[in-house]
């Protein structure tokens, strides 16, 4: 080719790059659309905590001594905690797959601001977790005599525990997504610690029945504190006597969840890989 021709649709004046905010919403929209298209994954994501709640709630229906509460209410609070942490699993596995199937590399080659990718994932997670929690609450109320909190301050507690919990576990999920060697191994690598955490953080087994060394380990991770926060909301003062500390320690809940948000952010910024291991 000897003559130069103007590139197609050459701009008369340099046009402005689309804003990071708009692209974050655009990413959230396409992530959400793709999430709901994987029908099998959607069904299992939403039915898993529901089935667990129905099974555990039905098996352990006994009353908790001296509190006027029953065990199934304890499970509702615990499972809401683990639904709040879904982002850990979804993002940990989802981003590993994105790294493996070329999504991340393709995006890195476009002018999309990198924050838009993370914001899109976070918004999608917030939506999925909210739906899960709403369904759990509905079932708790309908089947297991769960009482929704009646005070504004309880709903405020619920909101901050939920938001800090989702944020912290999403960031942690983004950080652990760099651990699996490939997208195929991701579900095994990431589901395992999540299941273990659920067992030692008071989701499946009431925390006062666990050996002290296990609760001490669980105390380092956010899930125990999220569950504790939700128990404060749904079991109220009557349940406080069941806590190891004799109270819900909401100040410590806030402190530790906040620390995980900051720690998760630092981990993401320092360890995130846009490329797969085979890409060098």
């Amino acid at each position: 080719m000897t003559q130069t021709i103007a590139p197609p649709a050459a701009p008369a004046a340099p046009a402005k790059l689309p804003s990071a905010f708009r692209l974050s919403l655009s990413r959230a929209a396409i992530e959400t659309r793709m999430f709901f298209r994987e029908k099998d994954a959607v069904i299992f994501t939403f039915s898993f905590p529901i089935i667990l709640l129905v099974i555990f709630g039905s098996i352990f229906a006994a009353e908790l001594e001296g509190t006027g509460l029953n065990v199934s209410q304890l499970y509702v609070a615990g499972l809401i905690g683990s639904a709040t942490m879904t982002g850990f699993q979804n993002l940990g596995i989802g981003i590993s797959m994105d790294r493996d199937d070329g999504t991340l590399k393709r995006l890195a080659g476009t002018p999309m601001p990198r924050t838009a990718y993370f914001a899109g994932k976070a918004l999608n997670t917030l939506l999925v977790s909210s739906v899960q929690v709403a369904v759990l609450l509905a079932i708790g109320v309908a089947m297991f005599e769960l009482e929704l909190p009646s005070t504004v301050s309880s709903w405020l507690t619920f909101t901050w525990v939920f938001v800090l919990g989702v944020l912290g576990s999403s960031l942690l999920g983004i950080a652990v997504s760099s651990l699996p060697r490939s997208g195929k191994s991701a579900s095994a690598v990431i589901a395992m610690p999540f299941v273990v955490l659920q067992f030692i953080s008071g989701v499946f087994i009431p925390i006062d029945q666990l050996p002290e060394w296990l609760t001490r380990i669980a105390s380092f991770f956010p899930l125990k504190w999220m569950c504790q926060g939700f128990r404060a909301v749904f079991l109220g003062d009557d349940g406080a006597t069941l806590e190891l500390a004799g109270s819900y320690e909401l100040d410590r809940v806030a402190l530790i969840l906040g620390a995980w948000v900051i720690g998760g952010l630092v981990l993401c910024l320092t360890t995130f890989r846009w490329k797969g291991r085979r890409d060098g």
Partner: peptide, 14 residues
């Protein structure tokens, strides 16, 4: 700059 990479299997559901 446009980039067409070697292999990609992403955005399968869109």
């Amino acid at each position: 700059v446009g980039v067409v990479l070697q292999t990609a299997n992403d955005v399968a559901e869109a």
